[in-house]
Design a protein around this nucleic acid. Sequence first.
DNA 1: GAGGGGCTCCCCCGTGCGGCGGAGGCGGAT
DNA 2: ATCCGCCTCCGCCGCACGGGGGAGCCCCTC
Lengths: 218, 218
Amino acid sequence: MTIRIVLADDERMVRTALRAILAAEPDLEVVGEAATGAEAVSVVRELEPDVVLMDVRMPEIDGIRATEQILATMAAPPRIVVVTTFENDAYVYEALRAGASGFLLKRADADALVQAVRLVANSDSLLFPSAVRALATEYGRAKTAPPPWVAKLTGRENEVLRLMAAGLTNAEIAGRMGVGPATVKSHVAAVLAKTGTRDRTQAVIAAYEAGFMKDAAS
Amino acid sequence: MTIRIVLADDERMVRTALRAILAAEPDLEVVGEAATGAEAVSVVRELEPDVVLMDVRMPEIDGIRATEQILATMAAPPRIVVVTTFENDAYVYEALRAGASGFLLKRADADALVQAVRLVANSDSLLFPSAVRALATEYGRAKTAPPPWVAKLTGRENEVLRLMAAGLTNAEIAGRMGVGPATVKSHVAAVLAKTGTRDRTQAVIAAYEAGFMKDAAS
DNA sequence: GAGGGGCTCCCCCGTGCGGCGGAGGCGGAT
DNA sequence: ATCCGCCTCCGCCGCACGGGGGAGCCCCTC
């Protein structure tokens, strides 16, 4: 019984390359292709393949959304393998959380590719069990629920909050930003209002809980 | 060229079962076994296999330590696949962080097992790239570097810090703990001293950075 | 029995902080 | 031309906070 595969990637060259590699294997068959996320969803729904090789970065609907939709709407969804160029692509975590069975890099060699496809095709409790999903979920917990107030902060307020969360006093922040202490106080007041907190400590907590500090790492 | 494998598991039955499965494949060869972590290290060092199937839970030295030692001391270390019974085993994260190339469940079927072995044997940039390692590292960051001061906090100080990090004022903390405000001030002062911070905000930051807030979740 | 650490509480003092209200300049949107 | 949002700053006020002391209590260890 051959493994039926659908390729979803916005670049034709990538699809062609993948198809060429997979065609060389007698037990693998590429039954369809898609160039956008939306197309991927409909194609997969129609063809019901065993495995989908899904690019994360695609126009209209990205690979994560497409993955979600496929898994949510199909009775017997295929295994979805996310394809990416950069191994630290943040989207990869999102994709795993969305339910992807695995991911692989575009620079992977042909041999590894076909083995990966075979592997995910007939194993659901193997290399990517829910443990990895839990890992990804844990990792991006903050990102999943980016509190509404984050977007409402102005540039200056954003800076101020970051410095607050670095443990600086208003005076220090003023010095660091090259403005007067009174200005900082204004910004702080605005931050407190927008975050719905009453003092700088609570604001800092909110910042951490919101994953606001994830970028600058520690 | 055959793939040379070493099995490390404290249960003989598991080793036998794995050996039986792998022996059926012409391209796979089990060249050695080990029943403890220490034994695994020496056996692997001597035989220089391509792949090691390593149980996480073993007497003396566990699979994580063994993995670390193997990767740290060998010039051309083998790929190490961690074997576990429970997919949410916390040790799995540790193992990935230690440098394991992947993990698989004991209830995995034979087919998946051999494919997994083949996969890790000849691919280093595929299913378990550094991204997963980064994920695991990120996940257990707090566990890896539990700042020295955490242990030095007394019971009360611990409680106080948690409440501080929940955004409470000294008065509120006093009420919550059923003591006087002056007492709370004392504890706060102690916390600031032990954490090396100058105000409650910095203390809260330290608490978050230390993963002090991981338990109560958000 | 003497010491030490943890928990409890007290005083005083200075100040960083946050609330309140106001003001001027500057840019984009209508 | 007008408005509105953002950034900049001012004064005044009250309080929570943190520093520096000290004190009594309990329990455990030495």
